[in-house]
Nucleic acid binder design. Sequence first.
DNA 1: TCTGGGGTCCTAGGACCC
DNA 2: TCTGGGGTCCTAGGACCC
Length: 423
Amino acid sequence: MPRYGLVDCNNFYASCERLFRPELKGRPVVVLSNNDGCVISRSSEAKALDIPMGAPAYQWEHVFRKQGVAVFSSNYALYGDLSNRVMSVLADMAPRVEQYSIDEAFLDLSGLPDAMALCREMRERVVRHTGIPVSIGLARTKTLAKLAAHRAKRDVACGGVFDWDAAPDQQALLRGAAVGDVWGVGRRCAARLAARGGVRTALDFTRLPGEWVRKELTIVGLQTQMELKGISCLPLVDAPAARRSVLCSRSFGELIEEKEHLREAVSDFATRAAEKLRVGGLLASAVQTFVLTPRHRTELPQHQGQAVGTLPGPTDFTPDIVHAALCGLDEAFAPGFAYQKAGVILLGLSSASGRQASLLDLPPEERERRRALMRVLDGVNRRHGRGTLRLASAAAPDRPWHMRQRRRSPRYTTCWDELPRIG
DNA sequence: TCTGGGGTCCTAGGACCC
DNA sequence: TCTGGGGTCCTAGGACCC
């Protein structure tokens, strides 16, 4: 029988923020999305105040003030670094690890004599080495392991680790889980299940006829159902799959009507996306640009535009990518709208090392010249901060529509100037 | 005034080919 | 009068995840 573990960092972003601010222990902490828009992480004290996940920050300001909630803008440099530290502890202890997200990892624990003991030790070591508390679920499928971790987190009696397979009454466990809490069952799907004969719990879901599930919820829904029944359909994926796209997009700090400003923003996004390409050793063959008006502002005229610009061939050369993205913008843009968001997606990715020579190839000396230029650009920007060297079409850093981040904590662990001071 | 960003996968439908 | 069928590839849109 396969055995999976799911390690889940508790309230990850909020926990990261609290690491460097011990005086916040016991106080409610929330972390906001980009632009300080909505709540994306809450400490247990903040959850106890009934601040929901995704709550728009402006609607909760009075609660933040009244209850002394510590509020942070998101600081991905910090979270990414702490995530790496947690993952490396796991990799040292478990035979096979699949990092599933910034704060979760699946483990393959099949065939181990005492998986439970290993998980307990792992949990202690992670908190000792990184300060981040984690919960661990164990089960014979990944989907059940997710539910088990959920349980481990909520039920303090578990001591942070819960073994689904060892539970005496697994039906009761399934009955206690809302179907919407099952991994792979989103809002839409949960609503359809409720509409169809009131399927509300995970147990109800397992009792539906498989043909109906296949037909209405596709093969994905059927897999979820089988996994809930204890039949493993989703294997551990240790080698990360090749990336299929690179996306860079932002909401603006204020709405943009001027095409010139959108050009600057899109130029920025394309530049960042090209950097990500080079970091990953990838080339893109197409660039998609999109622009959106604010969907929540129904009183404003709405427009969504997108267009794909093709590149001369697979490339990671910033000027080519920016140029194609701006061509896309010309097509996607319509005048007379106030835009709230834009983005650039790089598609048709291939590996830079395994690159096919083509008839359209540039002469080797020109290729080398471009590579050298990008190396210099990346080197300078790595050392002196992103955007130090940029194309003339890109935005100056002081534009009013740049994203708001009024409450970002220092980059304690990744930036020399922002190290914590002691004494 | 103020509601994130970055991904993946599946399906349906059309174009095209033999 | 009869008017194929199966395969592939691409795209758009939807749903899900954290």
